[in-house]
Each structure stands twice: as C-alpha cells, then as structure tokens.
Design a protein around this nucleic acid. Sequence first.
RNA 1: UGACCCAUUUAAUC
Length: 241
Amino acid sequence: NSLINACVRCGRLDKAVSVFQEMKGSGFAPNVVTYTSLVEGLGRAGKLAEAERLFSEMRRQGQDPNSRTFNAMIRAYGDNGRLDRALSVFESMEGEGCAPDAYTYNMVIHMYGREGRVEAAEAVLAQMQEQGCHPDRVTYNTLMTAYTKGGHYDKAVQVLQMMRKSGVAPDLYSYSILLDACAKTCSLQHAIKIFDDLRNSGLHPNVVVYTAMMNAYGRAGDIDGAEEIWREMKMAGCVPS
RNA sequence: UGACCCAUUUAAUC
C-alpha cells in the first residue's frame, strides 16, 4: 500500500496499477487503503469511469469504502468538472452507512465556493454542524476563500471572528486569504491591519503571506512598502519562491 | 472499547 500510494503521489498511475496487479497476482488481497489510493490516482488522471469501476469492485471483494474512499471519489468528480456526480456521491454516503467527516464537508464547501455558490456552501456548513461535525481551520479557511472570491470581504472577516470565538485559531492560510483579497481590491489599509493582526498572533509569516502582502503594496502603488516587506522577508530567512 | 500504524480537504507568486 505504501508503494502504491507513493506512485499515486508522484503521478505515476501506471506504476501504481502495475503494483496493484502484482499484489493481486501474488495472493495479497487489496484492502480499503489500496482501493482508496487507486481511486485517488485514477481521479487525478481524470479516469473517472475506471475510478467508479474500482469503487464498485471493492465492495464485491468485501472491502467496503470508508469515508476516505468516498472522499477520494468525491474529489475525483469534483476536480474533473463533475460537481453533479460529486454531490450525488456525497449524498449517497448516509444511505451507505458512512458518515461524512470534516474532510468530506470541507471538500464540498470548497467545490461550491469555487463555483461561486456561496449560499450552497453555507448550507453545507449548517448541515455539518447539525450532524455534530465541528468545523475546523480548513472549514473556516475554505469558507473565507468562498467569500473573498465572491467579493464579500466583510463576510470573510466575520468568519475570522467566528473562528476565534469557536476556539479555532486562525493560521497562515487564514491570513493569506484575507491579505490576498485586500491585494486584489487594492485595499492597502485593510491589508496592513490584517498583517498587524498576524504579527500579534505569534505566527511567523511564510513566503505565501509575504508575497500576498508585497502584492497589496504593489497594487496600491506603494513600491517602498513592497520593498520593505521584501527586506523583512529576507531578514526572516524566508526563501523567495 | 480505545490508541497507534499505510491512504483524503483550504491560501500567494509564477
């Protein structure tokens, strides 16, 4: 399984499949982890029919999909422009006796956000909470992205506050999402405020945050400010990308 | 029953 997964992660689906064949040929029964890795690999390669086939085959082999398998299948469809299919797999989970986990909800929220369907994303968040699944950092960050991409900066900031209130500490993703939004709308003053919050949080900015912040200065026409960030970044030992 | 062990989700620039 580790080898198959390594192949999948490196984009070598062909090798993953041949290891899978070898595995079966030498009498080792693939388990749920094996199938999940392959579904993921097939999804990345856009081979949806093949992924679906394994998704069915595993049940016949007595390996029922678990939440991670469903997640891999949902992502396979979602990343290949089949939101409709992704959603039907998502909706089938309950009936299959598999409860969606935070990853599941987070992915679905992300997919709706990417389509600009902010209200649908909010509905999934509500559903998540109804099911007793607690939103985590990724949930909040994903929702913030949905808002900023939809031009609702204020709502994104509200999410940051909601996040803190729920005891989930914002991370570098949270800040970079807001900084990027400020940069894209040339709201330098907001960006400066967010960057200040970040410093006070005790987190150390990384290259993504610095890049977004330089962008905020740059787009606002403040070259000196941008250079100042650049110097700070190098001083902090942060390597440019 | 639980923990651990192999597989899943979010940000900038290009």
